[in-house]
Design a protein around this nucleic acid. Structure first.
Length: 207
DNA sequence: GAGTCACT
DNA sequence: AACA
């Protein structure tokens, strides 16, 4: 498996999941979404809806609404605990994250072909020593990542179905986002669009 | 004056 | 289509 060093702290693994694993993972995510339905997050203060829909698995899930960005142990609408993280995701974390503790949160974002994600930092966690692991399923996304200051230089790369991307170390707080979804570039999903999984360690491990 | 902007 |  080829690891591409995209930038310091940023590694891209094209085709990390083979097609059979991708299909099996989609099946597992379908079950997650049955227990924890996709919801539409909203921007803090303004309440403006995101263009992506999301759900989570793991002990904590990332949510956003008028009250702000936060991690919480239960679904914001059903109030049920998030479903367990599929073992396949825990294995991917063990293999790629280089962090001794398991991930606590897996955010599942669904991008319709018109959905975008503006440049932002993942900084709602308390543990920045752990990297962020991203897995892509379905249509290819045009991903952009820069440095830790807004307005700095950025680079663009395409994330295809099965690709893994890890950003940690000096890139842990890098600004990143999704410029565009290339509709119809994959036939993994029954509809066009993309699923992105982001696995994160939220709290510092107990000493 | 920034923003998970909004548009060109 | 990518970039700014």
């Amino acid at each position: 498996m080829t690891a591409l060093a995209v930038a310091p702290g940023v590694t891209h693994w094209p085709g990390y999941l083979d097609p059979a694993e991708q299909a099996a993972l989609v099946d597992e995510l379908r079950e997650v979404a049955r227990q924890a339905p996709f919801f539409t997050p909203r921007m803090p203060k303004t309440g403006k809806p995101f263009s992506v829909r999301m759900t989570n698995c793991g002990s904590l899930g990332w949510v956003s609404d008028e009250g702000g960005y936060r991690y919480q142990p239960s679904h914001p609408e059903t109030r049920q605990p998030w479903p367990a993280m599929p073992l396949r995701l825990l294995r991917a974390w063990e293999e790629l994250a280089g962090y001794p503790q398991p991930p606590q949160a897996c955010l599942i974002n669904f991008y319709e072909p018109t959905a975008k994600m503006g440049l932002h930092q993942d900084r709602d966690e308390e543990e920045f020593a752990a990297p962020v692991l991203s897995l892509s399923l379905g249509d290819t996304a045009v991903f952009r990542i820069g440095g830790t200051v807004r307005g700095g230089k950025t680079i663009s790369l395409k994330l295809a179905s099965g690709d893994a991307l890890v950003f940690g170390g000096e890139a842990r707080l890098a600004y990143h986002g999704i410029d565009r979804i290339l509709a119809g570039s994959s036939s993994l999903l029954p509809q066009s669009g993309r699923i992105n999984l982001t696995l994160r360690r939220v709290t510092k491990p107990p000493v």
